[in-house]
Design a protein around this nucleic acid. Sequence first.
RNA 1: UACCUCGUGGUGUAACGGUAACACAGGAGAUUUUGGAUCUCUUAUUCAAGGUUCGAAUCCUUGCGAGGUAGCCA
Length: 568
Amino acid sequence: MSQTDNATATSPAKSDFIRDMIAEDLQQGRNDGWVVTRFPPEPNGYLHIGHAKSICLNFGLALENAPKARCHLRFDDTNPIKEDTEYVESIMEDVKWLGFDWGQHLFYASDYFEKLYEFAEQLITKGLAYVCDLSPDQVREYRGTLTEPGKNSPWRDRSVEENLELFRKMRAGEFADGSRILRAKIDMAHPNITMRDPAMYRIMRAHHHRTGDAWCIYPMYDYAHPLSDALESITHSLCTLEFEDHRPFYEWLIANVNGLPGSPYQREFARLNLNYTVMSKRKLLRLVKENHVNGWDDPRMPTISGFRRRGYTPESIRHFCSTIGLTKFKGVTDYAVLEHCIRDDLNKRALRASAVLRPIKVVIENYGADRVEELEFPNNPEDPNAGVRMVPMCNEIYIDADDFMEEPVDGFHRLAPGREVRLKMAFCIICKEVVKNADGSIKELICTYDESTRHGKKPEGRPKPKGIIHWVSARHAVDAEVRLYDRLFTVESPDAGDEDFLQFLNSASLEIVAAKVEPSLAIAGAGARYQFERVGYFYVDPKDSVLGRPVFNRTVTLKDSWAKVAAK
RNA sequence: UACCUCGUGGUGUAACGGUAACACAGGAGAUUUUGGAUCUCUUAUUCAAGGUUCGAAUCCUUGCGAGGUAGCCA
């Protein structure tokens, strides 16, 4: 249960427009039959479920097309002011946890800084790039607008020699930050703004997490990415839709730079959107920095580390990613699909246990005050191989507050004064009396049990109880902290309107309860997953749980058709 | 009256000129020592208008709608 299975090529590989395209390439014999992809995160934040889609795609393609296929992990670390090794480490951990392996193919765009610099000189030499002295404001002004063409920079026609000299001085640190850029010389009237002499290098004195202070000029993504792809002989560079407009520049670079080992092409797919959450790194960063959640791995976060700590399995996330498909349509996937995937997985694998989240004490007056017995429970009714365990019973038990109603509404099948229910895997009890505290709250329930109703036998002379409830022995129960997580936002699209998405934060997204759990759970190991019967799936918190005093995170509730009826 | 992309049940996807299907969600029932799970049944779909064709979700035209793009971010 705790070990993770790596992804395999046998995972369902449905067809989609990307796979169709690759099949066509293979059929045409392009790239000598190789499929080389890459997952290129910038190490400026933690990976989220949207990245999982890209990881499953890129690494999945490598698996599906083996042996002439591979997927690289490449850190796109071209903007040092935002990047950090903490993020590099978390990204590697998350990719591995998802079940993927980059093998020897770990790269950094910063590894190519020298090469990239040489390519820039090459473009200058060809008259395809120039140093521009315009200020950022002027660059914007000269660029034109969406509907009007731009105009040429006054520095556009410098000689090759002058450009070369200036660019070398840029590298040598002779100019102030932001004072000059190297631009491609394309077309300032191009209808696609990306092609209006895009910036390739900027001057930025920032400490880089890998190259330190070796550089004071850094390449732009649009320049570095295509060339990095080519240097690694990537064949298919797959990215999200917002880069579609950048494709012509990608192709321009591949066509105009000589000495590239590969000739990749870029295609774009729609990023994942999930309702009831936010997915942008900026917003996630804000949730963390402003302490709306407890760090990147808070179980309410849509980060991979958040889902991991919530108790999701890598298999369930991979299954989710294959379920949602791959298109260019920007849709919003229902969170229920993700929940279905984790329930489906855990139903088959999670051991069952009894836990009472909001305990009410029940005294079984005819049971015998000193009597204790051990009852046999299946560990997983879905899996006979999971075996059985013994669970103690005595005359005092806890049941869940949800399973008792002093004045039962229509359709309520559980315990109420004068009513009978079955205690799961034990016997039936009838509620004789409700004992109250001075403040009117329930102190305990006095019940009687019927010895003849064991092993599923129905009571004689009375109707068969419709309700079966879970319980734990009060004298044997273990105290546990249970963290009940719910969706982080109250609305489907927290970031849709002009309003601040934080105002839609769900104030009830975390409820911590003091639960009573069956004794076998005292030694629940970090990372173990259980189904608390009739309640949901729970994960032993890897950071806060200790032996004897376990902490459980609710991964997802069980489907509860009564709750749905009761809500009406 | 810029450029690019996308429009199939409530949601996400499939159908690659030949009976519009799958999953989730919703509804009904069966079953059940989890109101779970499982099983059965069910509601509901091609943005619009023209055109091509024996036949169009698919090809063409036009329109409409949605989104992206004016960082020295990625």
